[in-house]
Design a protein around this nucleic acid. Sequence first.
DNA 1: CATGAATGAGAGTTCATTCAT
DNA 2: GATGAATGAACTCTCATTCAT
Lengths: 192, 192, 192, 192
Amino acid sequence: MPRTKQQNEKIKQGRRVQIESSALELFAKRGFHSATIADIAEHAGVSKGLMYSYFNSKEDLLHSILVRGFKKLVEDFDLNHDGVLTTDEMRFYINSLFKGMMEEKYYWKLYFSVTLQPEVIDKVLFDELLSIVKPFFAVLEKYLESRGFEQPNIEVVYFHSLLDGILLNAIMNEDFYPIDEIKELVIKRYVK
Amino acid sequence: MPRTKQQNEKIKQGRRVQIESSALELFAKRGFHSATIADIAEHAGVSKGLMYSYFNSKEDLLHSILVRGFKKLVEDFDLNHDGVLTTDEMRFYINSLFKGMMEEKYYWKLYFSVTLQPEVIDKVLFDELLSIVKPFFAVLEKYLESRGFEQPNIEVVYFHSLLDGILLNAIMNEDFYPIDEIKELVIKRYVK
Amino acid sequence: MPRTKQQNEKIKQGRRVQIESSALELFAKRGFHSATIADIAEHAGVSKGLMYSYFNSKEDLLHSILVRGFKKLVEDFDLNHDGVLTTDEMRFYINSLFKGMMEEKYYWKLYFSVTLQPEVIDKVLFDELLSIVKPFFAVLEKYLESRGFEQPNIEVVYFHSLLDGILLNAIMNEDFYPIDEIKELVIKRYVK
Amino acid sequence: MPRTKQQNEKIKQGRRVQIESSALELFAKRGFHSATIADIAEHAGVSKGLMYSYFNSKEDLLHSILVRGFKKLVEDFDLNHDGVLTTDEMRFYINSLFKGMMEEKYYWKLYFSVTLQPEVIDKVLFDELLSIVKPFFAVLEKYLESRGFEQPNIEVVYFHSLLDGILLNAIMNEDFYPIDEIKELVIKRYVK
DNA sequence: CATGAATGAGAGTTCATTCAT
DNA sequence: GATGAATGAACTCTCATTCAT
């Protein structure tokens, strides 16, 4: 009995995810250029040829991973979109971020790598990714203003930089980074 | 009449710098793997072959750049080594860092890239670079303690993460980053 | 439908032989260093890239050829291994050697070349090859002793040198070398 | 006081020899292609550039070495040219050959190498070298005839092959080869 | 649908040779 | 004359991509 279209579609989706997650891991561990298609195919348990029925090129694979990761990110942080951030929501937001940090470490590593080498990723995609985050900044600025920070527009950047730096160091020094203590410090300064 | 040894030495030093600075720029802009020896040679105005009279390999070139950059960094921050940081010294230190940030943006970009792709840099070198910075942390911790921070050991990490994040964002968004305002904020929180 | 594993295996074996025999000819004719991978690939009718699915390196290709040739050699001379050489067997041995001489001239040429440039071949392989021939010497020594030669241990070396010299000259002067007459002389002196 | 022309000529000759003998050693040890001009220059204690005022190319250097070696060889064996070889002369000839064997081992190794890779040496030179040896064969044939060998024309080839084989093995297995005993065997069979 | 043998452009590297000094 | 910095052609090897099966 041949498979139904839906079954086929499911298999395909499963395989896509499987390939993307293998690729994500290897891109993160070895870098985009050093991770070869052969490596990824083997790691994902499929043939090289099959990869090309799912992705047009190695770059396409990278883009697909980045977009999927960003979408997931946005979903996770899909706060009640009333444009206002309460302290409880902010605490939840920070907790989520720190929680996801290590779970998604491959993604974050890849994200930073790619950010640092803008030539490997076309500008269109980059702007697309950016546009997703922008709205958060507006909400965040209001939040910081309501918390009594002067220059909330600058504080947004400061806060964002802080989180980036924490993220980067936590990922790179996974074993030594005092992630929980740092989180408490962030909460203390921005929530309580 | 052949050139004297000193003449040759001078030519060689000049060429080394010339090649290294071309390579630094291209490594930073395009990434280590995407920047080819041919690119670098052309950018430096020398032949591919000549590169190998100065560096044993592409990796050797990278290492040479990183080490030279680090040494320069350490020299620039060679505070009076009495193991104590005054507020004036701290202000000077922060000012220097922000000043050098953009001047050395290629170096920093490369530094972050390399940090994220540990496979391109052998562990020995990495540890060597690390060992150079370590002493600063101890001094910094004492400083933070004297400034009344509880948990100074955690605050060191927090501070370092903050600076990393600022550095990263400033480099990547050179044109938009409110670098001076951010600097003032850092000074306000850690010096005044 | 993809090829079965067996089909693939057959294709691969064929290609291996095809590449090795092209390489053998060019290594022999031009020398290991002068025969380029591009030459060999073209001569074998395959792409440069494909060579590296079959052999890890140019050196690996050389080693593979030498080992395969030696194995064949040993098979061809697999006398009844009772440790004794009769005159009939000796005659057969000499006839076989002279017969194979020209058929395998590329192999012999390569073998001598390689022997003369010990740096292209690692010692491990060389010893391995040598160990295959050693047993013959012991048998040969007994034979020579039984034929009334004084100092059979020296005569073995003398005989071996003689054959090497004949081999070398026959290969190099294929068109002029009186190979049959020389063979008769050898038989006359060592068999009859 | 500037050097006289003769002094200059002497220096030049000395340097030529010095370069040639360095090159000979390295060609023999590493092979023609693997021994680099830089290696040879360093080994000879001169600059690369200077090499090219003595020799037009690496090949020219090789040819020069081969021709010089051959000339020396011929001088050494410049028997009384009456076209007849006495047994005493033959004994002397064999003794000389075995004596020179190890003294000139680099030369012989190179000679065999080159013989086996005819493409590195142009045919003109090769024929030239050959023409020098030819006369010896005629004399040798007569000698063998007078000693009662049937088919002296074949015996010449046999004898020459034998010597080649001994030479080859003695050079390659310097430490183990029973050179003196082999020599006695040759003398016993061809002189006494 | 699925495979992996096959391709070929292009990477890093070497080295005989040249030439300004 | 003498040097060695500089060149560039040619090498070995890699790998994203294609396509016959």
